[in-house]
């Protein structure tokens, strides 16, 4: 693929991602108006409603202007990372998020890494040993892992490894980076298990499909040995495997909400849940927008990775 074709391809993908974020941001802003009760009431929270406070709120949020203008103001401010003030705490939403973001990012990366590191080899192994004991075991385990919600798994892990065996801490995030990693291990396992199941299933299915192809028979028929043949199949399975990897990152991003609540960790997820429960709309909007952008970026990266892996995709040409 030439540089120009690449540039055109990238531009198309980026534009699509931005369009998606814009559409969803509109919905996120509209949450303010969808919440039950009047907008002023929502924004006042527990503060007493008097003509003065309502007037102040209306001025602060420009509620007298048309809806579209309000949206654009909000979006413009968001681009400068200004999300207003939290109704619950009264502090800047941006500050609250930046205090909580690192933990969540570490947790998501840790969980995703565990999922891919364990799931990918297991999926390949199961496919190569199709129908044998390893395959049955891996398939069974992946079904369980995919179906088990992270909070239930987290609870079981806590009960067995923290309370029962005492190998891991029950609460807290630790002081040093090493300690943090130690504290986040059980949450990361709870978080990554579902993703691992997903990648085992998708990798196995893709590999089984590829290993059934004529080109594998032909490779074996001209004397290519095991490792080369598995390499052929793996290379051709990469597109579904990449899809799985993208799904894993997004699903851990969502799962972190449940896991942070289960393990009482002060991350973005628990912030979202607390704010949702309190109807702290500015914080909910900010977190939702942040997650939307993150997911759009992940999808974009996966899309571009497809094209790198399979030259036919970017050229818009299908294999015969």
């Amino acid at each position: 693929m030439t540089g120009q074709e690449w540039a055109r391809f990238l531009a198309r993908r980026v534009a699509a991602a931005i369009a998606v974020v814009l559409v969803l941001s509109f919905g996120i802003f509209a949450l303010l108006y969808l919440a039950p009760g009047s907008v002023e009431q929502t924004l006042l929270g527990t503060k007493p409603a008097s003509p003065e406070t309502i007037g102040a709120i209306r001025a602060q949020y420009h509620l007298d202007e048309p809806f579209l203008v309000q949206y654009l103001r909000w979006l413009g401010a968001a681009l400068h990372l200004d999300f207003g003030t939290s109704i619950r705490s009264g502090s800047q939403v941006g500050t609250e998020i930046s205090a909580r973001l690192p933990l969540t990012i570490v947790l998501v990366l840790y969980g995703s890494a565990l999922a891919v590191a364990a799931g990918l080899p297991l999926g390949v192994w199961a496919a190569v040993r199709r129908g044998l004991a390893v395959d049955r075991l891996a398939t069974g385990a992946s079904i369980a892992a995919v179906s088990a919600p992270p909070f239930a798994v987290g609870l079981l892990l806590l009960f067995v490894f923290a309370i029962g065996l005492g190998w891991f801490p029950v609460y807290g995030t630790g002081e040093t980076p090493a300690q943090t990693l130690w504290h986040l291990t059980l949450p990361a396992i709870a978080l990554g298990l579902g993703g691992m199941g997903l990648i085992v299933r998708l990798t196995r299915a893709a590999m089984v499909g590829e290993l059934d192809q004529d080109y594998i028979v032909f490779a074996r028929a001209r004397g290519l040995r095991g490792r080369t043949v598995v390499g052929y199949a793996l290379r051709n399975s990469l597109v579904p495997v990449l899809t799985a990897a993208g799904l894993i990152v997004t699903s851990t991003l969502v799962g972190t909400v449940l896991v942070e609540v289960t393990f009482a960790l002060p991350g973005l997820g628990s912030l979202l849940v607390d704010s949702v429960t309190f109807k702290d709309v500015p914080v909910v909007q900010a977190v939702a927008l942040l997650l939307t952008v993150l997911i759009a970026i992940i999808n974009l990266v996966v899309d571009v990775a497809y094209a790198v892996v399979d030259p036919r995709i970017a050229l818009g040409r299908e294999a015969s």
């Binding site: 192809q213 004529d214 080109y215 028979v217 032909f218 490779a219 074996r220 028929a221 001209r222 004397g223 290519l224 080369t228 052929y232 290379r235 051709n236 892996v309 399979d310 030259p311 036919r312 294999a319 015969s320």
Partner: peptide
């Protein structure tokens, strides 16, 4: 296989590894 007996399949559209350059596929064997 390969050195003593080799098999050529019927469908040229599915017989070759779609993501490997032709020369490398020949080189592999």
């Amino acid at each position: 296989r390969g050195g003593t007996v080799a098999l050529l399949l019927q469908d040229p559209f599915t017989m070759l590894n779609p993501l490997r350059r032709v020369g490398r596929q020949i080189a592999d064997s």
